[in-house]
Simulated scan of single mutants.
Amino acid sequence: MLWVDKYRPKTLDKMMVHEDIALNLKKLVTEQDCPHLLFYGPTGSGKKTLIMAVLRQMFGASAEKVKVENKVWKVDAGSRTIDLELTTLSSNNHVEINPSDAGFQDRYVVQEIIKEMAKNRPVDARGKKGYKVLVLNEVDKLSREAQHSLRRTMEKYSASCRLILCCNSSSKVTEAVRSRCLNLRINSPTEEQIVRVLEFIGKKEGLQLPPGFATRIAVQSNRSLRRAILSFETCQVQQYPFTSNQAIPPMDWEQYITEIASDIMQEQSAKRLFLVRGKFYELLINCIPPVIILKRLLSELLKKLDAELKHEVCHWAAYYEHRMCLGQKAIFHIEAFVAKFMSIYKAFLIATFG
């Protein structure tokens, strides 16, 4: 088992990061009827860990007894019936889904599937009716229509269902949905907190850490605890005992994007564009989010550019990122950005060197 899963806190009492939020959540769940919750914050900050700890606080160990189902739902879409395939992670008391997986049909997921799930009210061993919890991931990627439908579901089924929403940015969630939830901002852990977690794992694994080694991993992790733990385990696999000057290897996908950036800088042509397109497909197939690919590529390109070009390149990166969020085929927009960059950079080289 990976360390990131092995040492994931199971309860709110054992949180080494976000202890104050965990304490408040414990009081909220224990002392009163829990409201709808909205967790938002950057990737790797610990949102999912907190949500699973809240579920365990609510329902005990049964919250961990989950099954994964890949179901096809028949949904009435006016004049026709459409089939929607969704993967759900469920226990007796909760269901976790990602409605944005349905793309432009996400409103049907909210209107029909979530409504159907919300109607089924669980009954405990004493015959008392409880409530079911629906965990919805990536709600910031839902369309406006889906979010409006979600608001109505939250109001209508509040007696039998609680929603726990999870997203990276609350600004993309409508005010109507936000106002019906208790909003919890989950900040990225500080480098000191990450060092504390790495030292705890090292102690549990019986590892000797050279002075400053955990700090270097924390700095390179960009305040993502998940990434820091994965890097720590990678270092242990590659070389142990650790040395004070041991290199912290970058993630494979980051190294791959660095190579793509070098390819783009070396040659600006249709042939080279076709070559990097294949590499982008490799990243997308391996589930690297397209927005992350675009941001990382921009970061690598900016390192190699003259100051006078940086502003224009950033403008076009933002333009194509916005279009990517509106569209469905991410590869088109990533490729369009690369083509635009090649055009700008080639014109700059011709103007500079003739």
Rank of each mutant, 00 (worst) to 15 (best):
K6M: 04
Y7N: 11
M15G: 00
H18S: 02
N24K: 15
V54E: 09
V54G: 06
A63M: 05
K65A: 05
K71E: 12
I82K: 12
T87L: 10
T87A: 08
F104Q: 11
Q105W: 04
D106V: 10
K119V: 15
P122I: 10
K129V: 15
N137A: 11
E138P: 12
D140E: 07
M154P: 03
C166S: 12
S169F: 08
S170F: 00
N187Q: 07
E191F: 04
V195N: 06
V195K: 03
E199Q: 13
G202Q: 10
P211H: 10
F213N: 01
F213D: 06
A214K: 12
I217M: 01
F232N: 03
Q236D: 00
Q239D: 12
P249A: 03
W253G: 07
A270G: 00
L273Y: 01
F274R: 14
R277S: 13
I288S: 07
P290R: 12
L302K: 02
D306M: 11
K310S: 13
H311G: 13
H311Q: 11
V313M: 08
W316Q: 08
Y319T: 08
A330R: 05
I331P: 07
F332N: 02
H333A: 02
A339E: 01
K340Q: 06
A351C: 10
F353W: 02
